[in-house]
Structures are given as structure tokens and as C-alpha cells.
Computed example of a mutant assay.
Amino acid sequence: MTLATSVFSKSQAQREANLLDELVALTDHHRARSLEYRRILEATGHPAGRTYERVADLPWLPVRLFKTHALKSVPDDEVFKLLTSSGTTGAEVSRIFLDKEAAALQQRMLSAVLQQVVGPHRLPMLLVDTKALLKNRRSLSARGAGVLGLMNFGRNHVFVLDEEDRPDVEAVRTFLDKHGNEPFLIFGFTFMAWLYLYELASKEGFDLSNGILIHSGGWKKLIDRAVDNAEFRRRFAADTGLTKIYNYYGMVEQIGTIYLEGPSGDGLYCPDFADIIIRDPVTWAEVPVGTPGVVEVVSTLPRSYPGHVLLTEDLGVIHGIDDGSWPGKRFSIIGRLPRAEARGCSDTFEGAS
């Protein structure tokens, strides 16, 4: 890997100007290639030729639509990979269709984002998961896609859990004996990183001070343990020496786009090719900084399916703009909409006790 130019570089004004033209073009691209999407646009007052002055004016799709409709902008014979979300047991899952070009683009941009904190070289890597997750690579769950996607940034991979979902203490010990004195990468969904790495490392006295932890999702299960983001970071630092910790927000419906926590832990940030908008859950109007609402995510990456402007079922708040570690919006995810289906990934993990 080679270190990319920073993808956390544009002020909010620069970002808005660049994204607007690209997202309008993407809207037209998907309109021309997806009959279902074209019908939705026409039914919601967004006919061909309509002009838009702001990103917030663009038509959004509710993310749940991908659970009920097969929305794609490529022919069936060009579908290279089908990704599915990790819904709760018995729930419908989102289906995301990628052609080879889209799959390559999302991996390339994920690389550009993560290199900001990992650096240009592949590092020895601990995966707080089980290898059994990756048995069918053509049709991956969101959790599997997350693990497989992040594996590309490491080498000498070791899984913290065995194929029966039990902590493999000796595998972790051997990894740290071999690689613990140099920088190494750790990836895991948040709840699993806490339950299967923090608790194991603190109990066994493992030194993780040279680690870089990338983690996401699963905060809901930590509420009972009174662990929020600040406590998560504090306890890892105090009990294992791990201080380089980066939370991120992302979803299979915009695969490849992740919103990364700043180095000081002051919030999540949008890469230059993406943005978020917070909307009032009653009026759907954009709300000001500091006001919680429903998160809309926009990204220029989705080209094989119309997922470039999506209204999520997550609640968030923007803390500031152009005032933190990186330029652009600085925000947090604070929960789910009432009655929204619980997000999958680590929230659906039923590991061994």
C-alpha cells in the first residue's frame, strides 16, 4: 500500500460544492439505469431535469428500502458480489449489488480512509472475530464484509476467537510474543472488542500499547456494563496500554464509506467524498448544529446501486463544523429511531460465554 493524500482535507464549504455536482450526476446515472429508482424519483417530485442548489435538497431513499426491493443499476450478469446486512434473527436483510468496478472502488476508498491512521504498510493483525465467518465469500454478511475488508490492511492474521466462538488465549499470547513490540493492527466490532479482547487482555496482563484498534458498532450491549466511548477508551488505556483507538460509523448500504473518529476522540468525521445531514424526524427539515435528529448519509461511491443518498434509522448530532481534529462536520451517533430494527453485526453475535 502507498500512503494516499489525506481524504480528511476539505472544509465544509469546499465539500458541499464538490459533492453537489457529483451527487446530481449520480442521481441521473441511477435514474437512467434503474427503472425502480426512476419510478421512485418521479413519484416523489424529482423528475429528470430538476435542479438542486444544496446537497440537502437531493432525493433520499430510506435505507429500509434495500430490505424490500432489489435496487441495482447494473445488469444481472454484471453483478460481481452480493452483500447482505446482518439483521436480527428472522429479520429481512438489505441486499447490495456490486459489479467489479464498484467493488474495486469501495475497497480503494476504504484504503484511503484507513491509511490516515494505520499508515502505508500492512501491519500484523489481530481480528476480534472467528475465521468461520468467512466461509462463503461471494455472499457475505455485513459483519463478514467488515472483517474481510479490514483484513486487507494487515498481515500475519490471527483470530481472537476459535471456530466455536471461544477466546483463543494461546493464539493471542503467541501473536503478542511475536509482534507486540512493534506496531500492530486490531479490528473488531465494539462489543466484541470489549468482551473478547479488553476482558481477555486485562485478565491475562497482555500489553497492547503498540496496537491500533479500529472498531465499530455494538454500543447497545455495553450499556448494561456502563461503558460509553469515553470509558471504553479510558479502560483500554489504563488496563492494556492501548491508546490508538478509532471508532467508525458505516453500513453495508454504503459499503466502502466509513466515518472515522478523529485522533483525539472528539467525534466522527466525514471523508471528503461523503457527508452527513441531520434531519428533524417529523418535518424532515435539516436541523442546526447541536440538535439531534435522523442521520442522512451521502457518498459518491455507490455506482452499481442507488445508495448515494440514504436516510438511515440512526439518530445523531453534529457537534461542530471545521472546528476539530479534521475539517468538516464533527458528529456522534446517539441511538436508533424508536421501533427501528436493531442493527446487526456485533449486536446479533451470540458468542460463547
Rank of each mutant, 00 (worst) to 15 (best):
L110C: 06
S94V: 11
L105I: 07
V79S: 03
V79N: 07
S94T: 14
F80N: 01
A103H: 14
Q107G: 14
Q106P: 05
S85L: 09
L105H: 02
S94K: 04
L105F: 00
V74S: 10
A103Y: 15
M109A: 04
G90E: 08
R108H: 10
V74P: 06
D77L: 02
V113M: 13
T89A: 10
Q106W: 07
K81F: 02
V93Y: 03
L105K: 06
F97N: 04
S86I: 01
L83R: 06
A103M: 13
S111N: 15
K81H: 10
A104T: 02
G90H: 09
S86T: 12
F97H: 11
A112D: 09
I96N: 07
A103T: 00
L98A: 09
D99N: 15
F80W: 07
V79H: 02
R95Y: 11
S111C: 12
S86D: 04
L83H: 06
R95T: 08
V74M: 04
V113K: 11
R108K: 01
E92R: 15
A103E: 15
V93I: 08
K81A: 09
L105V: 05
L83K: 03
E78D: 14
T89P: 01
A104I: 00
K81P: 01
D99V: 02
D99L: 04
G87W: 05
I96P: 14
L83S: 02
S94L: 07
D77T: 01
S94W: 03
V74F: 06
I96E: 06
Q106H: 09
L98H: 10
G87T: 07
T84F: 11
Q107M: 11
E92G: 15
V79T: 05
A102C: 11
G87V: 03
E92H: 15
P75C: 02
L105A: 12
S85W: 08
M109N: 01
T88S: 15
F80D: 03
L110F: 01
T89W: 06
L110M: 12
T89F: 05
R95L: 04
S86C: 08
L98E: 09
R108S: 07
S85P: 13
A102Q: 12
V93E: 11
S94M: 05
